[in-house]
Design a protein around this nucleic acid. Structure first.
Lengths: 132, 132
DNA sequence: CTGAATCCGCAAGGATACTG
DNA sequence: CAGTATCCTTGCGGATTCAG
């Protein structure tokens, strides 16, 4: 039973000044704001690994997304410079979405998330086996 | 105006087999399922940089979260093994939340997100200045 | 085909009050 | 202090329809 004196004893620990903590939280919030949510990373990843794609094909790749949401998300991604929209005005009109070089800055992050998800799932599976 | 033949021409590109794409998407979904959402990463980050913390103090650190949500999120984080809940049954009762070693597996990911958020904000700021 | 517009249900999350 | 219970708002997102 450790002694607890006052609230002040618990705060930022040695490794981080309170300032650094706040900057970290803010930067984290920025990231989550831009690429957070249910779909954005999946769309970027789909375009990254699957190559440029048309609207309907993209909707099939990103399983479960509706046309309305996909449209909205693509707009936001375009605004933030992750995706380029190219229109070929043949008849019928063809629209191609492709990722921009700026999306490459997410490369490390994306790979890290995929790696983490993979090893996490392995861990879960092992724990599940133990229970049998 | 590039020629577009049929849908099949656009699919997984050279770098990835369709199979790899699917595995990537699934792993990504796993990750988002566990640590996605509005609060989880912020809470983990708060405990990581700020050190172990009591409930109310944690609520102050994670700006904007309500007690109800914080309670719920902590429960989920505990279930997934990211957070340990320690109860000291003095009067008044003291409850300390701390991160587990398993949270350390998120270290790289978290740092990567913070780094990305920082440089992204710099980019936005520069673009904003240009517009003036 | 590529979306935009409309309608609507559900669930996440906020505010407040209350308990041990 | 550490939550829980209740109520209520908001917005995400699905289904469908329509337009260019």
């Amino acid at each position: 039973m450790t002694e607890l004196k006052k609230e002040e004893t618990i705060s930022c620990n040695a490794k981080h000044t309170p300032d650094e903590c706040n900057r970290g939280i803010m930067a984290l919030e920025d990231t989550l704001y831009v690429i957070g949510g249910k779909w954005k990373l999946k769309i970027i990843n789909a375009l990254r690994t699957g190559g440029s794609s048309r609207f309907n094909q993209l909707q099939q790749t990103v399983t479960g997304i509706s046309a309305r949401i996909l449209s909205k998300e693509l707009k936001e991604l375009e605004l933030n410079g992750f995706v380029k929209r190219k229109v070929y005005t043949d008849t019928p009109v063809v629209v191609i979405y492709e990722i921009t070089p700026y999306s490459d800055t997410l490369e490390t992050l994306l790979n890290e998330m995929i790696k983490w998800g993979t090893t996490h799932k392995d861990k879960i599976r092992k724990e599940y086996k133990k229970e049998l």
